[in-house]
Nucleic acid binder design. Structure first.
Length: 522
DNA sequence: CGATTCGTTGTCGAC
DNA sequence: CGTCGACAACGAATC
């Protein structure tokens, strides 16, 4: 019996290594490749114009690739739970396929949608292809808990073996028995991709996309990086510069986030390059970077309330300040620290900043200087980054704020010294903050220290043309270390008024374990 | 259980 | 230019 099938694209915006799409095509007489613009995730509040443009580019590329196979992409706007039942009926659908998504929102959405599918007699098939492994298996192998250190994570992974080999894209041969649904001309419009203008975006402030979305660009970019075999083999993340004028890393992360590039394709392509050569190893290598992604995906599945401080069992509870002025200054690149402001400018303009640049601004916002909750920073990153992956974003903010995973809170990034290591002349600062262009090198990281005569000569008066620093880093960072110490102290002592202080706190960890154990029993 | 080791990628100053 | 210890001292995992 041949199926009428919807393949529902969400992430996984690609044809290569797409097992769910392949199972859609098997025994299929008609296929509707579908993308739903869901107001719960695709809205202007939580998603900035740069990631929007990346998504649209990716969908356009996907549509183009499908058309080469005599298929097309159907784009619909609305809530999946409203849209899908309508389409099931309208198109006479008997099967729906999609790529498994571990995010909490996606999981509850997919649960609802699967029930609706059942009611409509639609068979649901999903496959794991966004991550290297089935992260639930990793948790199982670690006795029901997500590993909290990278070393432990690697040990667990060894028992699972290497990730699966990627599968190729569907070919004309694969769809020879599949009919492309006949679409009337008005429907061509109805299911077409809306423009960014139509969706109400202001494109006037956008410059040309440095990282255009789409599978084709993803694979081109992958090959471009992999051609540099020496560079690939000697890659060590900590040795790459956060403030080079062009990216010092691959910038494949946005393509992984949207699934334009399969992590397994990347993994095995790297294995090809490594083959027979001496090469760097995790955690610093490129393989290591993919494992970090896997690490945070696993943690985000194994830890309840992963993206929050409250009720997050691995997150240290910290008395962050509510400080809208400081938060805006950070967000809008007017902290008065050129290194920080340059990074935030690049983030807003280009939608991508180097991982270590993220360290610097995240530490500055949270435990280092401004003492603002990492959840605020996470929200800002989510809206601006092309690679604002839910699990990675939350995980890295937990890390940098020393709320979880990383605990050596006395190691504080200096907003002045850190950037100097890799850009002592401040070229990066001058690129993104041209107002400081004429400042002499010795003051470029600390313009407020320049004598007034020097400021005048540079055509930039600090406090007027460029902000004065909002905090005194040397003083505030030392105070903040003490505040961290207090928060950590409370954590290990437990709640003093509790009759069993130690036990009350100790329950924190096992509660995750218990939850997962209970789940398994069901 | 207690002790020990290790932990993706800090900074500063001495040598 | 690189390496090392002090700084002040954390939790997770292991034995």
């Amino acid at each position: 019996m041949a199926h009428v099938c919807i393949h529902w694209f969400r992430k996984g915006l690609r044809l290569h290594d797409n097992p769910a799409l392949m199972s859609a095509l098997r025994g299929c007489k008609e296929i509707y490749p579908l993308f739903i613009l869901d107001p719960c995730i695709h809205n202007k509040e939580s998603m900035g114009v740069n990631p929007w443009r990346f998504l649209m580019g990716s969908l356009q590329d996907l549509d183009g690739s499908l058309r080469k196979l005599n298929l097309r992409l159907f784009v619909v706007r609305g809530k999946p739970q409203d849209i899908l039942p309508q389409l099931f009926q309208k198109w006479g659908v008997s099967r729906m396929t999609y790529e498994y998504d571990t995010e909490p929102y996606s999981r509850s959405r997919d649960l609802k949608v699967s029930e609706l599918a059942k009611e409509h007699g639609v068979e649901v098939v999903y496959k794991i292809s966004h991550t290297l492994h089935d992260v639930d298996r990793i948790i199982e192998e670690n006795n029901g808990k997500a590993p909290l250190t990278y070393g432990r994570f690697q040990t667990v992974l060894k028992t699972l073996g290497p990730p699966k080999r990627p599968i190729p894209s569907p070919t004309v041969e694969d769809i020879k028995d599949v009919k492309a649904p006949c679409v009337e001309s008005h429907e061509e419009q109805q299911y077409g991709l809306p423009s960014l203008e139509e969706l109400g975006h202001d494109l006037s402030c956008l410059q040309e996309a440095q990282f255009p979305g789409g599978e084709e660009e993803a694979l081109r970019r992958l090959e471009e990086s992999m051609e540099r075999t020496g560079w690939v083999c000697s890659f060590e993340k900590p040795q790459t510069a956060p403030n080079s004028l062009s990216p010092s890393t691959t910038v494949l992360s946005p393509y992984l986030t949207f699934g334009c590039l399969s992590a397994r394709t990347f993994w095995w392509r790297l294995a090809d390059v490594y083959q027979g050569k001496k090469h760097s190893a995790p955690p610093v290598s490129l393989h290591g970077q993919l494992l970090w992604r896997e690490f945070f995906y696993t943690a985000s599945v194994g830890v309840p309330n992963f993206d929050r401080m409250l009720d997050n069992p691995v997150c240290t509870q910290i008395d962050w300040d509510t400080n809208p002025e400081y938060l805006s200054a950070w967000k809008e690149a007017r902290t008065g620290f050129p290194f920080i402001d340059a990074i935030m400018t690049q983030l807003r303009r280009e939608g991508w900043i180097h991982h270590l640049a993220r360290h610097a601004v995240a530490c500055f916002l949270t435990r280092g200087d401004l003492w603002i909750s990492w959840e605020e920073g996470k929200k800002v990153f989510e809206g601006l980054l092309l690679d604002g992956d839910w699990a990675l974003n939350a995980g890295n903010w937990l890390w940098l704020s020393a709320s979880a995973f990383f605990h050596q809170y006395f190691r504080v990034y200096s907003p002045i010294a850190f950037g100097k290591k890799t850009d002592k002349h401040g070229e990066y600062i001058k690129k993104y903050l041209p107002v400081l262009k004429k400042f002499p090198v010795e003051y470029i990281y600390e313009p407020w220290k320049a004598p007034l005569s020097v400021q005048k000569a540079a055509g930039c008066i600090v406090g007027k043309d460029y902000p004065s620093p909002i905090v005194e880093h040397e003083v505030i960072s030392k105070q903040n270390i003490q505040r961290m110490k207090t928060s950590y102290g409370k954590r290990s002592q437990g709640v003093s008024e509790s009759p069993q202080p130690m036990k009350a706190e100790k329950r924190k960890g096992p509660s995750v374990l218990d939850m997962l154990k209970n789940k398994k029993k069901k």
